[in-house]
Amino acid sequence: MGDFVKEILVKPIQYADEVVKLADGAISFRQDCLEVKTKSEKLVSLLRQAARASGDLYERPTRRIIDDTEQVLDKALTLVLKCRANGIARIFTIIPAGAFRKITQQLENSIGDVSWLLRVSTPADDRDDEYLGLPPIAANEPILCLIWEQIAILCSGTIEDRTDAAASLVSLARDNDRYGKLIIEEGGVGPLLKLAKEGRMEGQESAARAIGLLGRDRTASNRL
């Protein structure tokens, strides 16, 4: 997992470094480019933290968040490059109204997403009790991010936290078949099986109950 994360972080870190480097040379929209630079500096710092913590990051949200972040930084780099054009090239370079407002918001969202990823993947002993909240990426899929959070706790939490996470997954799987499928797709079965083997009685029961609920759907259970 660690090598995979480092590999997918190469491009976004490279893009962010390029944005930071090139923004100072902007000819047009200079102030806007400097704001993009500031946000990119913050984002690349978080991405480097992710690279250092690559072995602890939960794979499913990592893939999604880093992919989205790479796309945002690619757009930011393209925008900054347009602002460096001069002479005839500058005349034919069109920057849509609101482009900077949109990209700065997207960068801010990426900062929130990567910050959440680092917090949710932090081992329980090193994590404070602050509520993690939902990342910006959860705007359209809050349940998915809730499932990510519970599975992350199952992977790195204390026995007590893992027991609570298993109970939460039981509630989700019981309430909605789609949530059960998501738990399977997002890699929840392995950590549940591990808890069923090594947890305390309450945790083992919750894990077994969750696995039983996940096995109700024949199509989904083929992935168990």
Rank of each mutant, 00 (worst) to 15 (best):
Q14N: 13
I137K: 13
L169G: 04
I65L: 12
P191W: 01
L144W: 05
K82N: 12
N109F: 13
G180C: 03
V36E: 05
R60C: 08
A138I: 00
A173S: 11
T69C: 15
R119T: 09
L193K: 13
A139D: 12
G212N: 11
R223P: 00
I95V: 15
A50P: 08
L79G: 05
E205S: 09
G133M: 02
V80Y: 03
R127S: 09
S121P: 06
Q106N: 13
G25S: 15
L22H: 14
G199A: 06
K181H: 11
P142W: 01
E186M: 12
L79M: 08
M201C: 06
R200Y: 11
K6Q: 14
E70H: 10
I137V: 14
R52W: 06
D175P: 00
K75V: 00
V120W: 02
V114C: 09
L154R: 04
R127C: 12
K37D: 10
L57W: 03
T69S: 09
V20T: 05
I66Y: 08
K11H: 10
N109M: 10
V10T: 15
L182S: 10
G212Q: 07
L46I: 05
E130K: 07
D113G: 03
G199K: 03
V20Y: 01
R209S: 11
A166W: 00
A165H: 05
R178P: 01
N109I: 07
L192N: 03
L224H: 05
E130I: 13
E7N: 14
A208V: 11
K42G: 15
E35Q: 15
A85N: 15
Q31G: 13
A139H: 12
L182M: 14
A208D: 07
A207P: 01
R174T: 10
L46H: 08
R223N: 12
I27C: 06
Q106K: 15
T93P: 08
I143N: 01
Q105M: 11
R63T: 06
L47N: 07
I88G: 04
I91D: 09
A167T: 04
S121E: 07
E41Y: 05
I183V: 10
G190H: 10
D113M: 09
T158M: 06
P136N: 11
V114Q: 08
A152N: 00
R90F: 04
E70P: 01
D129H: 03
Q71A: 14
S171I: 06
I94D: 14
D128N: 13
G190P: 01
A51I: 08
L107D: 00
